[in-house]
């Protein structure tokens, strides 16, 4: 039992509802119209392109092609982190690529090998979409964590310097903001892990059920992915801060971002 195919033109039917939205926005002077249209348009183009691309990748289903795609995803996520957090690409791109590429890669291969028990752990059908979920979550966690750490240090420069003056080394002196960063990164995922399924069915489960899986199968996958997300997000933020901080301070332990 597969999912009902959607013809290429029927998604356009949804535009019927966008028209009243645009009218309301216009009448009330809510300046969202441009952004809404742009977002919907961009989303469609982006997904169609990814769809074409993935079709080919699934066709090849080759270890190297799949991994190249995964590495591309890691790079894109790292770039987005660097930009959102106001870091420099030259100094901080590579640390972040490694910082959250590594734990997520370990996690996905671990799941495929030991939890799902695939014969080919690089199988595109599992490797790519699951990695996408892990990375997407790690990305938002990394942005919160890295921002909390560095902006905490910037805003509390006097307190940080005082800790240095009290002879704390760089690690000891930055520890309060490091802890804050880990907590800030983990809080949202802990909250959503706690309440998942009560409010809405998560996207992956919905997809699997639509695709014809039995609910219990979908549930087990969801449990695995939630656990994996929580774990790789945790290690991802540790690694990312530890690796980026090497080039974030000068010889005098002053923040030099």
């Amino acid at each position: 039992m597969g999912v009902q195919e959607i013809p290429f033109y029927t998604p356009l039917y949804l535009l019927i509802f966008v028209v009243p939205m645009a009218i309301i926005n216009y009448k009330l002077g809510i300046g969202l119209n441009k952004r809404i249209i742009y977002a919907l348009f961009r989303m469609t183009i982006q997904l169609v392109l990814v769809g074409f691309f993935l079709q080919y990748i699934f066709l090849f289903n080759n270890l190297w092609v799949n991994s190249a795609y995964v590495i591309f995803m890691i790079g894109a996520a790292a770039l987005s982190t660097v930009k959102t957090c106001g870091l420099t690409i030259k100094n901080q791109f590579l640390p972040i690529v490694i910082g959250f590429g590594f734990p997520n890669l370990v996690m996905i291969l671990f799941i495929n090998q030991f939890v799902i028990g695939l014969s080919n752990i690089f199988d595109a059908q599992y490797y790519i979409p699951l990695m996408g979920m892990l990375l997407g979550n790690s990305l938002s966690g990394n942005i919160i964590g890295i921002n909390t750490f560095y902006s905490g240090l910037k805003q509390n420069e006097r307190e940080y310097q005082y800790r240095l003056a009290l002879s704390g080394n760089q690690w000891e002196s930055t520890l309060p903001w490091y802890k804050e960063a880990i907590t800030g990164c983990m809080n949202p995922i802990i909250a959503s892990t706690e309440t998942i399924g009560l409010v809405s069915l998560p996207g992956m489960m919905t997809g699997q059920i639509l695709g014809g899986s039995m609910p219990m199968t979908a549930i087990f996958y969801q449990i695995v992915i939630m656990g994996a997300i929580l774990i790789s997000r945790y290690f991802g933020i540790h690694f990312s801060i530890l690796l980026t901080r090497k080039k974030a301070f000068d010889d005098y332990d002053r923040l030099s971002l």
Partner: peptide, 15 residues
């Protein structure tokens, strides 16, 4: 730094 005690007007004692 470990030879110096530093106290300033706006010392931010750790929280």
């Amino acid at each position: 730094r470990s030879k110096i005690s530093y106290v300033s007007q706006d010392t931010d004692i750790p929280k």
